[in-house]
Simulated scan of single mutants.
Amino acid sequence: MEILSYSSEYANAFKELNLEWLNKYFWVEPHDEEVLGNPERYIINPGGSIFFVKEQDIIIATVALMKIKEGVFELTKMAVSPLYQGKKTGQKLLEHCIAFAKKKGWDHLIIYSNRKLENAVYIYKKFGFREIPIEKNNPYARGDIKMKLNLS
């Protein structure tokens, strides 16, 4: 298993992995379509990062760190191929993101999620994310929980 940084050759994998889980559990929102359709514009160019997990020449997972403001990034668009779920791939990707954010000296990470995704929420808590109040106009209609991880 290898963790890679964004390259345009993986842009389609970023989109497809995310569309797969969104369609399975929820629906694809306009905000998702924009970001997934142009990750360089919405994530990379403003100062964010996208990572991929590659195993035997196949991209099996992805996650993004989207800049909200200086020192504050949203951990978003995390997706693991169903064939590779249950193998701690997401946890390894989460560990990588936290270490990356700490190395960059960021203040904190936030996550918007949904309580329906019990395993994901459990893992976020396991890694130190704590629930904070969610704003009324959060960017995701499906989002019913917001979490924060202090990095300092």
Rank of each mutant, 00 (worst) to 15 (best):
L109W: 10
I110M: 08
I110W: 03
I110Y: 04
I110G: 04
I111P: 12
I111V: 15
I111Q: 04
I111L: 02
Y112Q: 00
Y112R: 06
Y112M: 07
Y112T: 01
Y112P: 14
Y112C: 03
Y112W: 08
S113Q: 03
S113P: 00
S113I: 05
S113Y: 01
S113E: 02
S113R: 02
S113V: 02
N114K: 11
N114L: 06
N114R: 08
N114P: 07
R115I: 08
R115F: 00
R115N: 08
K116W: 10
K116N: 11
K116R: 14
K116D: 02
K116E: 11
K116T: 13
L117P: 12
L117C: 11
E118D: 14
E118Y: 14
E118Q: 15
E118L: 11
E118W: 06
N119L: 10
N119K: 13
N119Q: 10
A120T: 10
A120H: 09
A120F: 12
A120I: 13
V121K: 10
V121W: 08
V121H: 10
Y122C: 07
Y122D: 09
Y122F: 15
Y122H: 13
Y122K: 15
Y122S: 08
I123L: 12
I123D: 05
Y124I: 07
K125N: 12
K125M: 12
K125I: 07
K125G: 13
K125R: 15
K126R: 15
K126Y: 05
K126F: 09
F127K: 03
F127V: 02
F127N: 02
F127R: 00
F129T: 04
F129D: 02
F129P: 09
R130T: 13
E131W: 07
E131A: 07
E131M: 09
E131H: 09
E131L: 06
I132M: 03
I132F: 02
P133W: 13
P133R: 13
P133S: 07
P133F: 08
I134K: 06
E135D: 08
E135G: 13
E135T: 03
E135F: 05
K136A: 03
K136R: 10
K136E: 09
K136Q: 07
K136V: 05
N137H: 12
N137V: 06
N137A: 09
N137S: 12
N137D: 12
N137I: 10
N138H: 07
P139E: 00
P139H: 00
P139T: 00
P139L: 00
P139Q: 00
Y140N: 07
Y140L: 06
Y140R: 04
Y140M: 05
Y140W: 14
Y140C: 08
A141I: 12
A141P: 02
R142E: 14
R142P: 07
R142N: 15
R142K: 13
R142C: 12
R142I: 15
R142D: 11
R142M: 13
G143M: 00
G143T: 12
G143Y: 01
G143L: 03
G143S: 15
G143F: 07
D144G: 01
D144H: 01
D144Q: 04
I145Q: 03
I145M: 10
